[in-house]
């Protein structure tokens, strides 16, 4: 069976979703305009990290957890960082596209090997690979070693924003990319491909009987998630102006898994909301309780997974009582028997 986007979301639903995505983007940009300057940077980082989380959410829907996506995040960041600092390419869009494609290629290469793994072994194999990248970067004096690489200020379509506008321009760019990626992913999750992905978690053997190769599905999702992580890493590199090997360290990957579970597998906007909540909580606790922020962060996570089993994204649905437009229609598929 070949998988193609099902015709269902075409037409009205598609138009509606595009309208929703544009509306969200407009709202985000408006909020950015009105928000105090100190909130902008954290919001930008949250949106960029939300992209990484989005990729992990896709894997989570298949029942897979990667403890090594910091590798792709870091790889994307270094591709952008090195192109900008070494080759003098500063256009934000070009850098992000290059990083995304490069990371997708790396994802494909590793995915061919990893698609046969499940559970803890999938998680740990990813971890091992990311730690190899971390070690290699730490050791590479020519790539800045542990101190990392400085990334020059980006330009947007040939324009370099003046000093006071840099944060806002970065925010606008990242918000646009995030909304576009979110919309594309919504299309994927509504397609036949998106629906059968859920089947991998539910029951692989049934997929076999349908003539669908779970391995190939995992490969597709893995490459997508790698590309998203690379995109997120590239955006963080452009926005923060500095990349370090620690982006590939296992605690960074752990942080993404943390946000993914915090967000829940339910929705696309939830991934960004989860990243936002995480960044805000970490910033606030770090600023006011520099000696106990880990304790509070840990406690917060425990409470969320205890009382919001489907993550923060379930909160919105619970409150409004309506289905989230981006949630997969099949809901969660439970593995039985």
């Amino acid at each position: 069976m070949t998988l193609r986007p099902s015709p269902a979301p075409a037409g009205r639903a598609l138009g509606l979703a595009a309208a929703v995505a544009s509306a969200i983007l407009a709202l985000l940009l408006l909020a950015g305009w009105a928000a105090p300057s100190w909130a902008i940077y954290t919001a930008t980082i949250a949106l960029a990290k939300g992209l990484v989380v989005l990729g992990l959410v896709m894997l989570l829907r298949m029942g897979l957890i990667s403890f090594g996506h910091g590798m792709f995040y870091c790889f994307g960041a270094y591709v952008s960082g090195l192109l900008a600092s070494g080759a003098g390419l500063t256009d934000a869009l070009a850098l992000t596209l290059a990083a995304t494609l490069g990371t997708a290629a790396l994802g494909l290469l590793l995915g061919l090997l990893l698609a046969g793994y499940r559970g803890v072994f999938f998680a740990m194999f990813n971890l091992a690979l990311s730690m190899i990248l971390y070690g290699a970067l730490l050791k590479s004096v020519s790539l800045g070693g542990s101190d990392g690489v400085s990334v020059p200020a980006p330009s947007y379509f040939g324009l370099v924003p003046p000093d006071g506008m840099r944060s806002l321009a970065a925010y606008g760019f990242v918000a646009t990319i995030a909304c576009a990626a979110g919309f594309l992913l919504w299309l994927v999750s509504r397609s036949q491909l998106g629906l059968v992905l859920l089947g991998v978690k539910g029951n692989e053997i049934r997929l076999d009987y349908l003539g669908i190769s779970a391995r190939r599905l995992i490969l597709v999702a893995y490459v997508l998630s790698a590309a998203l992580a690379g995109m997120g890493g590239s955006l963080v590199a452009i926005v923060s102006g500095h990349v370090i090997p620690e982006m590939a360290y296992w605690t960074t990957s752990g942080e993404f898994v943390f946000i993914t579970v915090l967000s829940g597998p339910g929705s696309i906007s939830g991934a960004f909301a989860g990243a936002g909540v995480f960044e805000a909580v970490r910033l606030a606790t770090g600023q006011y309780l520099p000696n106990a922020w880990q304790l509070l962060l840990g406690g917060f996570l425990l409470l969320v997974i205890l009382f919001l089993p489907d993550g923060i994204s379930s909160l919105a649905r619970r409150r409004t009582g309506t289905a989230d437009a981006s949630a997969p229609p099949a809901g969660r598929v439970q593995g039985e028997g």
């Binding site: 898994v257 106990a292 880990q294 840990g298 406690g299 996570l301 425990l302 997974i305």
Partner: peptide, 11 residues
Amino acid sequence: ATFALSLIIED
């Protein structure tokens, strides 16, 4: 949950 626990214990 155990990851959260490790953060808490470390602090």
